[in-house]
Design a protein around this nucleic acid. Sequence first.
RNA 1: GCCGUUGUGGCGGAAUUGGCAGACGCGCUGGACUCAAAAUCCAGUGGUGGCAACACCGUGUGGGUUCGACUCCCACCGACGGCACCA
Length: 809
Amino acid sequence: MAYNHQEVETKWQKFWDDNHTFEVTEDTNKPKYYAMDMFPYPSGQGLHVGHPEGYTATDIMSRYKRAQGFNVLHPMGWDAFGLPAEQYAIKTGNNPAEFTNQNIEVFKKQVKSLGFSIDWSREINTTDPEFYKWSQWIFEKLYEKGLAYEDEMMVNWAPDFPGGGIVVANEEVINGKTERGGYDVYRVPMKQWVLKITAYAERLLSDLDDLDWPEAIKEQQRNWIGKSTGASVFFDVAGSKDKQVEVYTTRPDTLFGAAYMVLAPEHDLVDQITTPEQQAAVKAYKEQIATKSDLERTDLNKDKTGAFTGAYGVNPINGEQLPIWIADYVLSSYGTGAIMAVPAHDERDYDFAKKFDLPIRPVIEGGDVTQAAYTGDGLHINSDFLNGKNKADAIAETITWLEEHEKGHEQVNYRLRDWIFSRQRYWGEPIPVIHWEDGTKSLVPENELPLRLPHLTQDQLKPTGNGESPLANATEWLKVTREDGMKGRRETNTMPQWAGSSWYFLRYVDPHNNEALASKDKLDYWMNVDLYVGGAEHAVLHLLYARFWHKFLYDLGVVPTKEPFQKLVNQGMILGENHEKMSKSKGNVVNPDDIVSTYGADTLRVYEMFMGPLTQSKPWSEEGISGSRRWLDRVWRLLIDDEDRLRDHVTTVNTGELDKIYHQTVKKVTDDLENMRFNTAISQLMVFVNEAYKAEALPVQYMNGFIQLLAPIAPHIAQELWSKLDNSDDLSYAAWPKYDASQLVEDTAEIVFQVNGKVRGRMTVPLDADREQLIALAEADENVQKSIEGLSVRKIIAIPGKIVNIVAN
RNA sequence: GCCGUUGUGGCGGAAUUGGCAGACGCGCUGGACUCAAAAUCCAGUGGUGGCAACACCGUGUGGGUUCGACUCCCACCGACGGCACCA
């Protein structure tokens, strides 16, 4: 009978569930392997074909490692806080929790239909109070260590965001608009909870080196952290002895070329130093930029703007007085929010100087300051004791001078900013803080965690209109009274979606623990994650936050490793048949449910792995998927006849005709799986099947081995064939086949004969034929003779086992 | 503009250390089976020329190193992703 995928897949999925096949314990006698996917946000859309790609990859590795004798942890969970559920609730009056749980049920059913070897007893859900209790616990530890603080700071405020506006993290702003939805972002001061990720900047940067991650992601994180080395330089303000402007520069060597100074408009000193005559102009400028969105500010960046404060700074190196301006091309949030401007050697300063007619004095040879700023290296000029020195020497010399004269020092800066951690939302983890009427605040006591989200009615969920979270409407929940009668109000902001995903991988190792986020023993055994697979879109957000929290927990002694994810793999995107990103509007979306019901989960798994390298983006093909199904049918027919019985040619007799290809296949598939080259592993399995079709007899032992090699990729059909071959042991834990290296040894090799690098003949010779023999054979070759006719031989290269190349002219 | 990734048949993609370019699959062509079709099995399939043996061309473009380059080096072009006044 033909292969019936629906029957077989249902049967074995039930078998795995009933037998708890993939539930895992801490068997310390075995080496461990922790393979994990980035857990999904359970949207109402359900799974798309991109999800199974990564999930299949980790599942193959999990099944392969299990057969290799590893104790494998392969879990799944749900990143279930987030805006869509809240917005849906506002619109329909449904409870976000119920809605979320319905979505999870749909997702879970879909994921299960693909036959992954997941330990479902460890399923987690970030919206479960028993889970977010520990998100809150980590926040409290951060607070206790001074790494979570509340501050009036310039935040990214998107007032048009549905539901009354929202503050987003720097990382969530793309081109001056919110990453989600594309709403305009304004920089406004607001009181927010902030996590001090900058305290870990250096470690987040340097520990990247030892990680087995794609270079692109490491590079993105390095750029995001943005370490730079330069100098702080102190400029006195002329006429006011007690005031100093500290600037940061990476080019202290150009100090003699400083022409003016610029403060960020928000800089503290601006109001103190502005002269009475300039006050109106400065005030007008500050108002002008305050109303601009980030996008408008960047758009206008070609056209520099600014205002003169009327004050002057004193260049410490030569006593020269430099006008102090304010301009929004200097950012208050980077360095000291103040710069020395060297228009001759900095493009931004050059543009500004041109616009406001400020002097441009070169201090490095090379370039033409009438045309453009020169940012390259060269010998210094107009620079007193630096004259004649190159950039590197002059930088070192200047820093020495600054330090000796106490006018500055070497300084390292990071582009990374602290992490704005509060969101004006209902559907997130409540921040466990109480604000007391005397102006103090305190944490919710640890024994009262989790601080649960109160139930809100549809009306209460609606925006407050003042930028506050809907939790401000939860009157009863909000009020707290202390034993001493002091009244307090709970924090109404909630945590961002990144909170749960910053540590969820720790919870999988001990998901039901009430005493700790996970027990020390289990963390010691399982951490860190050996393989983490997910999309590249999380390069700086999730992966940086998770590393930060992990390092913090490492410092607390909670986790045993400095880094959470040893190996990271980004699966490529699956594109539509037209090579474009799948989207509803383009009508090229493929629904995995349809594929599973038409062709089966195994076909989907084989196809997605065979399409090409896991890490590459590749287009979907309907013909490709049916080809994968045809191949599985071919595998089935190789072993099973029309009456659904094992074919007669599967025997215990080994004629030897498949020896070589079998052992080659075991070797190649093992190598390929080890290196996650699933496409070439499948191709080798196809080659084996092609050979097997030509063979008279199929030794049962080779057929069993082949099924084992196939099992990680197509587990259902493999299980069915395994049972039809009368195996009584559990395929999921059967020891991985070994190959016999002696079967792979060749005693002959095909030697290529070349003349001037062009192939002119070939011959199969004994492997031990030496140089002289090979040359003789090549020279005797008819076609070779024809090619060298009339030429004189200059040189002959002969490499035994490979090639003979005759050079002649 | 800067950083990263990438470029191979009609299509998806292989190619260990510099040593036969195009494995495997899709598609296409032919054959077998069939009254016929589908399915299946077998064979062929980079381009040009030739009945053929074979020859020439061919891994984004242009150079270079080498007996020999998809592979190493230099310059450039295109695609994709990220960053974007970070002093």
